[in-house]
Design a protein around this nucleic acid. Sequence first.
DNA 1: CTGAAAGCGCTTACAG
DNA 2: CTGAAAGCGCTTACAG
Lengths: 355, 355
Amino acid sequence: MNDELKKGKRVTINDIARISGYSKTAVSFAFNDPSRISVKACATIQRVAEELGYYPDPLARKFSLQRHESIGFLLPQHIHFSFQNPYIMQVVEGIGSVCQKYGNTLTLIPPLNESVLDAVRCAAVDGLITQGMSVEMEIVDSIKKRKLPFVTIDGIPSVDMPSINIDDKDAAYSIMRMVLERGHKRIAIIGLAEVSYEKHAPASIQRARLEGYLRALKEFDLDFSSPSVGLYTSETTLDEGKHMASMLLSGRFKPTCVVSMSDIVALGCILQFTEQGISVPEDISVVGFDNIVESSYILPSLTTIDQPAGEKGRRAAEMLFTLIRGEHLPQTHITIPHRIIERDSLSSIEEQNEN
Amino acid sequence: MNDELKKGKRVTINDIARISGYSKTAVSFAFNDPSRISVKACATIQRVAEELGYYPDPLARKFSLQRHESIGFLLPQHIHFSFQNPYIMQVVEGIGSVCQKYGNTLTLIPPLNESVLDAVRCAAVDGLITQGMSVEMEIVDSIKKRKLPFVTIDGIPSVDMPSINIDDKDAAYSIMRMVLERGHKRIAIIGLAEVSYEKHAPASIQRARLEGYLRALKEFDLDFSSPSVGLYTSETTLDEGKHMASMLLSGRFKPTCVVSMSDIVALGCILQFTEQGISVPEDISVVGFDNIVESSYILPSLTTIDQPAGEKGRRAAEMLFTLIRGEHLPQTHITIPHRIIERDSLSSIEEQNEN
DNA sequence: CTGAAAGCGCTTACAG
DNA sequence: CTGAAAGCGCTTACAG
């Protein structure tokens, strides 16, 4: 009876069945639904299993059940960048807590051999959460083709693509409006580097926010073509934020306020400005977007838009599990409230000569 | 030929074989190794597959190959806590980048129905990385029973448990020694809350660090039973750090320096002290452990031990993949260098009356 | 270049 | 309470 142990082969349900004298069915029940067999049978089977060090193979079980018990999060940027952005980490945390609640695992999916499409094709998950996706993207077809339920965070809401967002346009409008009301006229806008799903991203929250900024700018007779408005783009990391700041400092365009689409980049700017002897907000103001915890304790503390990252993750995950259960979604597009957080990084500029 | 499409059933390799007129073998080759069939066969198969929207089922493929193409990270604390600790996030980032390199996915494994053991049993992974584990733990048996390769970070090195660490005892010694040399005599030590793997954790890095602290204390005629040394424990989150600080402030024991085993808790202390009008480091000093980025820009900046979290994750993952490939590990226990980072949160205390 | 067939290790409807 | 058998959808050694 110890022959197979020596072989070094995996102990399977067959071994337990043969040795215990019961059927595979019985063995399976012993592990999954003991009430369906006699106490004696169960005890015998458990004992044999214990002796042989038997472990039901999770992969075989999942295959048989056709369920992975895991949902995936498609990393929006290279994993290195994603993890440097506390906002994303909070979203992931929200997703993760719901996974834990439902006894699922959270699979972080980086591009497979540079290809997000392949990654989706191979992902061992029951559903997917993506960030910053819009329906026109190739990746969406890929997901649908696999008939994988999914919901997108910070994407462009669209039919049959459940989504969870804040009102980005309005949020952007209100913070830009505040900046302009404080008298700022030379503005550097730092947008988000494109999501890695696709080279040429179509509509995105980036666009929604730009629209919001633009609306405010227009109310002050400015727009993106004004010489006093500069548009930039940065990876969402502290280092890239610092980098942007020193570029700004060494360039010809001298903004009085930096309006960033992410807090982490705004923090980088504050740090770099300070480092180079430029005072924030006396010499230059900085405002952000996200309200990550760090923004409350950086000096000066950051004026920004609060958006509940953890809740975004949690609600997206709840929606996804509803979908996975095959139930109907009460609401396909959810918009969570945001609010402006006024702190110390934005100063007022007195009326004075331009330039 | 469209009958099965209407059924809503999944399109399988069988359908493609039947409809294309080739065998399952050929279909499989068309997707995995086209060189083994004729160009014509491949083209036909691809066309049919495309028409029917066929997608090889990843789960079936993994089952057949007996590989998950994913490694797991066993969350040391409740997911909510883990994600609030930038140190852990950096470790995860390191692991993740190696996963990406090898075309693997990273599975975050929370306890399953409160049970880490069940979680390990069910995890769909080829290997496991754990944090803060020692061999005596029940969970280790569970992992071994499943014959899952694993490596542990910040655990207690031991035979047949590959590990990656810094010299915690030495690191703790050197920072405590620095604190004492600065004249501090009333010290509050804040240790790490226990890992969730097990209720009564045996040896741990916590212990190693305590030994280091103790060695330094003894050199100054102090030890843990001295009335001027207080031992506390905290979850590694900013909020718990704040909480500890206000407890300290309202307690009878008035330390002149807080020595924390984690930066995030140290940051929480600094924030709370400042909030309550206590100046750091004038009124009270704080030192940490980890050197997370935030420590460099908090005010005052934090004196701490630098340990390369990302590298820990990366090297642990590299070891794990070596193990998964069935290769021999050149080195079972790796110790990465650490160093002390002196910044502004630790002040000197002049000689004066005690108490 | 091609295909029949065994195998991966479970679950579960069904009959007894 | 119990078991024989079909099924989950692939891969691949082997023979032709």
